[in-house]
Amino acid sequence: MKRIIARREAVLVVLLLAEMAAMQSLSPLFLTPDNLIEVVRQSAEIGLIALAMTLVIITAGIDLSVGSIVGLSVMTMGMLWEDARLPLALAVPFALVAGALLGGFNGTLITAVGIPPLIVTLATMAGFRGIALGMSQARSIRNFPEGFLWLGQGYVAGIPVQVWILAVTAVLFHLALTRTAWGRSVFSIGANEAAARLSGVPVNRVKMQVYMLSGFMSALAAVIYAAHVSVAKPDAGLGFELTAITAVVLGGTAVSGGEGGVLGTLIALLMVGFLRSGLTLARVPSEAQDMMVGLLLIIVVAIDRWSRRAGRE
């Protein structure tokens, strides 16, 4: 089992290197430290969401509302700061709590009422976005202080701040998933929920925590995104769910649940980021890039299915 996952990640690394070589041949500007760091910086916000999405998908769930949680929590922060005159040092924690509560709302409907995650989060994807647009009347909030913008634009030891945040969170997620009883219960829920329940795993509580974590990470991504682009807008995070889910699935986490890991997600995130960056340098329009990312997702999953079937025969 462990060997299969490790092999999958090795394949991803080889693919990533091949892709980087191909992109370098498209543009000599690709393999420069500045460009590589920039790609990682651009991927950091979605990366934070994709980390939590990995856990959600390992439990055989899905969270389509993450992009809307980004929009709603960033407006919560912005409006608390601008309208309620709260210092950002308070508004930011409020936004993070709001994100966790929104995730908790999803979790309650999924665990207590028993509605499938796809439908719950499809509905809250529309619902949360509507609240973000409605309460702000679609205005944007600007003029954040320098200290706040540092979160999204500053550097520590030559590496962007959000890349540090992503790296530290990724290590924490990896350890929690592979080294703790909690992580094992996340896997066991996805592999066989009924069996997990019978063997004493607090299924509902763990699922609730996973969705709250997803909401919290979306809010964290929202704060960093606002600092990165210097503006809080209610349509922030539009489509983030697609890129995040693409990274998770591309990274080898099975949508049927029970297997996967955050390492694969991170490698896949870089694959998508490098692909886009290389194609941009080669002047391929962004809509053609969207096409290729979609195709990449389908092709990689199709190859995975075929190889598994061949392995069984």
Binding site: E287, A288, D290, M291, V293, G294, L295
Partner: peptide, 10 residues
């Protein structure tokens, strides 16, 4: 999900 971006991009 994949087709969504393939078709829209296309």
């Amino acid at each position: 999900l994949g087709m969504m971006s393939v078709l829209r991009g296309g």
